[in-house]
């Protein structure tokens, strides 16, 4: 019960933070990405605040041997830069620029403007599933077992 409530709480904090930050506003996102037009630097403050809070906290949190409700810290083990990382991220940037929505804000907007972002979210989930199927079928060279 407590475990479930804390999961809900972290999701709520994430969604609320996104709403307060301005990330749910695609035109504000586009204003931030429009470096060569009339630029709104606000979203650099979202990234800055999130990274700094997490940078300090992460070092304190992972000093413990394990998380409160789980056996271990599930941290990414992949290292090195491969073509997938770059190609996937490049694609994501194009989609983000086109719609002014990245995955968190798209989900967080769903209850407020379902008719506007509904199709975006559905197609994003389709894209995620297709991407995962493609990736599973073609394992990365770096992570292939000998």
């Amino acid at each position: 019960m407590l475990r479930s409530l804390t999961l809900l709480a972290s999701g709520i904090l994430f969604g609320a933070g996104l709403a307060i930050s301005g990330m749910l506003n695609p035109s504000k996102v586009a204003g931030f990405l429009d470096l060569f037009g009339v630029w709104d630097p606000s979203l650099a403050f979202v990234m800055g605040g999130g990274v700094v809070a997490n940078f300090i906290g992460h070092r304190i949190v992972t000093r413990r041997t394990q998380p409160v409700f789980a056996a271990r810290f599930n941290l990414p083990t992949t290292s090195g830069i491969d073509s997938r990382l770059i190609v996937g991220s490049a694609l994501f940037g194009v989609g983000w620029g086109l719609g002014g929505l990245c995955p968190g804000p798209a989900v967080a907007s769903l209850m407020l403007v379902p008719s506007e972002v509904g199709l975006f979210v559905v197609m994003m989930l389709v894209g995620l599933a297709v991407g995962r199927v493609v990736m599973a079928a073609r394992p990365a060279v770096a992570s292939q077992p000998e």
Binding site: L91, M124, G131
Partner: peptide, 8 residues
């Protein structure tokens, strides 16, 4: 594109 790109 966002879904596909973030999965890859």
């Amino acid at each position: 594109i966002v879904g596909l790109g973030t999965a890859i």
